[in-house]
């Protein structure tokens, strides 16, 4: 007999579902597959992915409660960037409030990452006006970690930068990691992690100090399907908690879930 139900239950428990509830869901799912005389693996797909999908569905609010947008967290007015003679973009306007998600889209090389770095304050704009809240979390597309340190040591390091006590930083980091269905190994250096897990670490580090504004540069690089769903669920949770999120993305099918889309296009553009 297939061990699909066992793997399904184990994944549910790993994602935080109580063991009794996981057993019940496992039995219901097996019965459902049995009704169709089908192998669960073929009927529902891989056990871990279906478990994640189910958890996401279970946690989704039953009725959408529209929340009022909060205070302005980021306002760009006529922002431009030029490298010597090459203009990357100009006249970019964007306003993002607490409880809103904005997506920056556009072709390769149109300046999406540059704009995000300007929002963070890591790159200076050539022109225009930027106003943003002080507490900001930035998650780069890749890199941004020290290969020989473990995830816990990263929590300590970034926590110290934000003035957090080491123990609090570690426990906060471990908790945030669990929300992305990841349990950091105590002795595993970051360079031994998969690309997707490194990005989960990057996300946790960006959120560790509780920023009001999160700036995410295609943070799902290397994620499997389950992690990708976890990520967007996390974005929705941030929004529901009143945080502002700006995410650079190539994946247009996620744009239905966001409040603003800034299409930089080939030469830069304005808020849709």
């Amino acid at each position: 007999m297939s061990d699909w139900p066992l793997r399904f239950e184990a994944e549910l428990v790993r994602l935080g579902v109580r063991p009794e509830r996981a057993r019940q869901l496992g039995a219901e799912t097996a019965a459902q597959a049995g009704e169709h005389a089908a192998d669960p693996d073929r009927f529902f797909g891989p056990a871990h992915l279906y478990a994640r999908h189910l958890v996401t569905e279970l946690q989704a609010p039953t009725a959408a409660v529209p929340s009022l947008p909060g205070p302005v967290m980021l306002r760009l007015t006529g922002v431009s960037k030029r490298y010597r003679r090459r203009e990357v973009f100009s006249g970019v306007d964007l306003t993002v409030r607490g409880g809103e998600v904005a997506a920056i889209v556009g072709a390769n090389g149109c300046g999406k990452s540059t704009l995000l770095r300007i929002c963070a304050g890591l790159t200076h704009p050539t022109g225009g006006d930027v106003r943003r809240t002080r507490r900001v979390g930035f998650v780069p597309q890749d890199g941004g970690t020290a290969g020989w340190l473990t995830a816990e040591e990263h929590f300590t390091l970034f926590g110290a930068a934000a003035g957090m006590a080491p123990r609090k930083a570690r426990s906060t980091g471990t908790h945030l990691a669990s929300r992305l269905a990841w349990r950091p190994g105590r002795h595993q250096p970051v360079q031994d992690l998969s690309g997707g897990t490194r990005q989960k670490l990057n996300l946790v580090l960006g959120e560790l100090h509780g920023p009001d504004l999160l700036l995410l540069d295609e943070p799902y690089q290397g994620f499997d399907q389950g992690s990708y769903l976890d990520f967007w669920r996390q974005v929705r949770e941030w929004r529901d908690a009143g945080r502002a999120v700006v995410v650079v993305t190539h994946l247009l099918h996620e744009l239905e879930d966001v409040d603003h889309v800034l299409d930089l296009g080939a030469h830069g553009g304005g808020d849709r």
Binding site: A120, L122, G144, F158, A161
Partner: peptide, 18 residues
């Protein structure tokens, strides 16, 4: 090797001297 980490530490609140 710390080039990628340093700007993020600054954003989190660390000083250059630190």
């Amino acid at each position: 090797s710390a080039r990628g980490v340093d700007p993020r530490l600054r954003l989190s609140g660390a000083s250059v001297a630190g």
